[in-house]
Design a protein around this nucleic acid. Structure first.
Length: 241
DNA sequence: AAAGTTGCCAACCGCCACTGT
DNA sequence: GACAGTGGCGGTTGGCAACTT
């Protein structure tokens, strides 16, 4: 299933990741964020190249990464987006919270492609709406609708998966940690400010600098997808802003 | 039961775009 | 503008498991 672990000429390990390596990388990134992929393996105590670490984090270790079977809705969505975007797997993945480009790409090559080719040959003369006909008949207007549908799907899916994506109290006491949580963004209570749970309005320059530094590190620690997810949630909650 | 084939998917590779100097 | 460093993307590969002969 996975490539055998080997050591290359530079002394870097390649191939399958061990649970210990996973733990090291996950712990490090959750605490300090991924500030520089090339440097991370050194600081995390890993004999891996930065690229390998990045890939492992994005495709496997990152919080909220879904594994396992794709739902029918997800399948349909992938097919539609592929018709619209082609092999731009990262773009497709950005619209499917929890799915990685690699996983979608694999799923496409192993499942959807042959299923579609089967469908097309079976249904070439039928009047059922195949993806192929969708593609041939779709106009710019259709495509805009599709993009809009994609956004909505992302929004709703995002809401669905928010539960595990959110920040818990330890976020505020243990900088950069993005572990699982019970609390929803929507539930963030400003009264926490009064209770000192969140940083209150700045009382000193250095406090402000500390907060700013922590905040920037937090931003670096979460992926673009998570940012998009948070952004879309915001749009869902405050559509008129 | 053994050998050969196919399917699946994690991980790698090479290229390109972006950014900073 | 040229260059180097870095991150991201899409194509490809390697190897295990399941299936077939």
């Amino acid at each position: 299933m996975v490539k055998k672990p080997v050591i290359d000429e530079n002394g870097l390990k390649k191939g399958a990741w061990s649970p210990e390596e996973d733990n090291k990388l996950k712990s490090y990134i959750q605490r300090y964020g991924h500030w520089n992929w090339r440097e991370i393996p050194k600081f995390a105590g890993l004999a891996r190249c930065g690229k390998s670490c990045r890939l492992r984090w994005i495709n496997y270790l990152r919080p909220n990464v879904k594994h396992g079977d794709f739902s029918k809705d997800e399948e349909d969505f992938i097919i539609k987006l592929h018709k619209q975007l082609g092999n731009r797997w990262s773009k497709i993945a950005a619209s499917l919270p929890g799915r990685t480009d690699n996983e979608i790409k694999n799923y496409w090559h192993t499942q959807l492609k042959k299923r579609l080719s089967g469908n097309i040959s079976q249904n070439s003369s039928s009047n059922s709406e195949t993806v192929d006909t969708f593609c041939n008949t779709s106009t710019d207007h259709d495509r805009n609708d599709l993009a809009s549908t994609a956004d909505k799907t992302l929004c709703l899916s995002s809401l669905d998966s928010m539960g595990s994506a959110l920040l818990d109290e330890s976020f505020w006491t243990e900088p950069f940690a993005l572990e699982t949580s019970e609390q929803n963004y929507c539930d963030l209570d400003l009264s926490l400010l009064d209770e000192g749970m969140l940083l209150s309005p700045v009382t000193s320059y250095w406090e402000y600098m500390d907060f700013l530094y922590s905040f920037l590190q937090m931003l670096m620690a979460i992926s673009n997808e998570d940012l998009m997810l948070a952004f879309n949630l915001h749009v869902c909650i405050y559509p008129n802003l």
